[in-house]
Write a protein that binds this DNA or RNA. Structure first.
Lengths: 216, 216
DNA sequence: ATTATCTATAGATCTATAGATAATGC
DNA sequence: ATTATCTATAGATCTATAGATAATGC
């Protein structure tokens, strides 16, 4: 697992620097996700990374910088997955409902594989305007991508106003996945279903809204 | 604004106790909502309430107890509004879409009038299992109430399986309102619309899913 | 020679208490 | 006489630094 270089700037001159920095970033991401950023001390992070506090500060000048390094790494990873999803030709010849299914599975998996992502983003967004706008940008681009991709399949829809229909469907998918992943405060009945049954139920609703004949 | 007595127990023996306790609870609710619980010191709270730290500790033994007092007051207030919404005869003679409209407007207003509610609940739920289950219970009862209320109107639906349809619709309303209120991390296109237009768009989707003729 | 690591600790907060002073109400 | 308030401060964390020791790589 190599870490992409980002704003914070990797500063190692020896091979072990990379190892230590990765260990620290991994430990920080875990702990921030489990307990929250504020509740995690830099000493906690150093301990889980099996390094001393002095070593940690040799690589990251402040706690704030460490937090940003963790966030940068998270965002870079997610952006890569999103780019992959919207790669040209990826959905060639597939109907709208396949795209929606891929989107639902993808966004569910994305949050599952990064347990701390939501929590860290939320906590940091409360104080840091730049992180907030980066998180928003990520969501924005994802939504835009999904909408324009679906609109290329508008001939499949019976809905009189495809643009409005697609906008609603995209929002609904985003909101429902968010509610499903963030089970703490927004419990829904669909949360009790397995991922696959959840996706199936959503596809039925999407078909009803866009007025697609579900045939597959 | 009288505060309902809750678990934490009001302990005043003089008239000014009530005033001070209310001032402290108001200040705490504001600050916890603005900056978060962790980032707010008890001295901050005392200052905004125009009382000394000694006075604060005379009324609330620990910061944890103060936090719980704030949460209790929030939950009690919300429960009251929910009871009001589901009061018998409240929706007599009104069609399903009116109920959904009332629900959407109500839940939107509920979060708007208590800016800190979501944030406080989320932060506290991360560490305190009891608060988590109380928040969940609130949402659970609301969802149950909405579903059973809507099911009494099932003759209006063309949907072949009203129970499934209603479950989906209730979840969708909850998730979409949550996404709209929590604009930080879950931006949606519908967030750009006014509350009224958002409600209208939602009602169209609900009508499509349940297969209701929108006539009103 | 340079870079990375460690231990020990200074300095800044933040929660909570002690003890003195002021206000209330039987 | 009892309750509420205030000021001052003890004790617990937590971030960040200083300075000594160990490992790396030209």
């Amino acid at each position: 697992m190599t870490t992409p270089e980002s704003r914070w700037g990797r500063r190692g001159h020896q091979a072990r620097s990379v190892v230590t920095q990765d260990l620290i970033l991994d430990a920080a991401e875990e702990l921030f996700g489990e307990r929250g950023i504020d509740a995690t001390s830099v000493v906690d992070v150093a301990e889980r990374a099996d390094r001393s506090i002095g070593s940690l500060y040799h690589h990251f000048d402040t706690k704030e910088l460490l937090v940003h390094a963790v966030v940068d790494r998270l965002i870079d990873g997610i952006q890569t997955e999103i780019d992959d999803f919207f790669a040209p030709n990826r959905w060639e010849g597939r109907p709208a409902l396949h795209i929606v299914r891929g989107y639902l599975r993808g966004t569910l998996g994305l949050d599952r594989s990064r347990p701390g992502y939501k929590r860290i983003g939320r906590e940091l967004s409360m104080m840091d305007a730049e992180t907030l706008s980066r998180y928003r940008g990520l969501r924005q681009r994802t939504g835009d991508g999904l909408r324009s991709l679906l609109l290329t399949r508008k001939d499949e829809f019976g809905h009189p106003d495809p643009k409005t229909g697609v906008r609603l469907v995209a929002d609904m998918c985003t909101a429902m996945v968010a509610a499903r992943v963030d089970r703490d405060t927004t419990p829904t009945q669909l949360s009790r279903l397995s991922d696959e049954k959840f996706v199936t139920a959503m596809l039925e609703a999407v078909a009803a809204i866009l007025q697609i004949d579900p045939e597959d």
